[in-house]
Design a protein around this nucleic acid. Structure first.
Lengths: 263, 263
DNA sequence: CGCGCCCATATGTCTAATCATAATCGGCAA
DNA sequence: TTGCCGATTATGATTAGACATATGGGCGCG
């Protein structure tokens, strides 16, 4: 069950108390310990010295050490239990997180020119098939349906099909989406959003293939995002990427922690 | 650009100082403010009272309030800048995180019986094509190559192709994978792992389609995971899911935060 | 009127101290 | 030997106080 060698009381490797140059003290400590763990110098399951001793070794107060250890625990690198002390966490599952980023940023980051081309827009009553995009029936009210193409260097990059709740996102009927993307506009117009995502692989239909300039049946990455605000649905969108064009990438440590920025 | 109504100094809604029942004080405050934000009562961009005032209203010290606000800022709900004070964050991008979970857990959670069927295993010198799975050349040493099928109720669920570094993962040549999955075995045998993931949509080749009992060319979700330990590659794996079978789901708040557990 | 300096201010960080909580360890008794 | 119970101990939470730092706005000078 357990590897042959597993130390029990690791030393805080190369951590001379006065050797930091930038950042705050507990940030420095967090980075130091994180590297010790990721590099394998502190294997999972190994016991850390007690808080007071670590604080002494790093030359900080127990509170500062506590903050650093608490952060590492919150990020999934450490497991802390009363009395038992602090241990390096075991990698729990082959889980990961994948970031889905904004399309415009994505295109621009790849050094290509971004453009959005609105293909169609209609205001119509909600239908039953809309539930596919929204997860639930849109209700009796009117919805705004639209379809557009995200272009990278004027070549198709992603096909967007979207439903907007005009009751919440006013102006959706009037908004000109020739330059601004519906997503970007909504982000500015709607107060808040909680969303759920679904990622699948699908074969391109004839219509989709034509718009994306693909062969019929080519594998595409489908991302469906449903956004809510204050309990009401705001928008449902289906993004279709050619499989050859797009990929989701994640680099991560033990659990999922760390995250994008760190403040 | 901005919504018509946007309060500037919101009140800490239903937060009487003595009305908490469980959890710690700053956890309670975090939950309270989070709900205020998610419910839309504190719209993005609105200014919060200063730390000292909030601390007074909640009946805690500034340190505790600071901890709560710092946590909310770390999770992306708030933006804090010196002098300017604390504001509710604008939803910055249409970004999300998607969790990739362990296959066995995944199958079992869907109520089906899980089984792994090893198709082939070979120990051979590293080749140049292995870089596709590992990101870099495997070096001069020997590698263990294997292919197997994850079955749900004895029907193909996922095709796994894997390379293992036997120098690190000893026993890879001898291990019997008829019941235990290679991924599960590696997690127990190898001390630590840092991994990178890539998710794409691909069309099934003839060989893949036959193994997964699909039509040739059917869209599949491809997940490539490269795992390292102590700077050395441990394993590279390619998981191929039929697009109709598999989907990745994410539910999330404003940025990516919140995460799995919080305690 | 415009530019730049200065300071009030709000957050950021850190400390020492105290109380709370939980879990382990060891002793004691049945 | 076994089981229970309390003492020990390590983390967790919280507080008041102090200093650091950045910055936005006001004020003065050119």
């Amino acid at each position: 069950m357990s590897p042959p060698l597993r130390p029990t009381r690791p030393e805080p490797g190369s951590a001379p108390p006065g050797a930091r140059k930038g950042g705050t003290r507990h940030d420095h400590i967090v980075e130091d310990i994180r590297s010790l763990i990721v590099d394998g110098r502190w294997p999972p399951g190994s016991q850390l010295p007690v808080e007071t001793e670590l604080a002494e070794r790093y030359g900080v107060s127990r509170m500062t050490m506590n903050k650093a250890l608490g952060q590492l625990a919150r990020d999934g690198f450490l497991v802390r239990r009363k009395k038992s002390g602090t241990q390096v966490a075991q990698p729990r599952a082959e889980s990961a997180v994948v970031a889905i980023v904004d399309i415009r940023d994505e295109v621009r980051r790849s050094g290509r020119a971004y453009r959005f081309h609105l293909l169609a827009r209609r205001a119509r009553p909600g239908r039953e098939e809309d539930a596919l995009l929204l997860g639930a029936a849109p209700g009796v009210g009117e919805v705004v349906w639209l379809q557009g193409l995200h272009l990278a260097d004027d070549r198709p990059f992603c096909l967007e099909t979207r439903l907007i709740n005009p009751a919440i996102a006013e102006g959706a009927k009037a908004q000109d989406f020739t330059d601004l993307t519906p997503g970007g506009w909504l982000l500015g117009a709607v107060p808040w959003s909680v969303a759920s995502h679904r990622v699948r692989a699908v074969n391109a239909t004839a219509a989709e293939a034509k718009l994306l300039e693909l062969a019929v049946g080519e594998a595409c990455l489908e991302i469906v995002r449903r956004t809510q605000a204050a309990g009401e649905w705001v928008t449902g969108v289906r993004l279709l990427y050619p499989g050859s064009e797009h990929q989701l990438v994640a680099n991560f440590g033990p659990e999922a922690g760390g995250g994008p920025g760190r403040g």
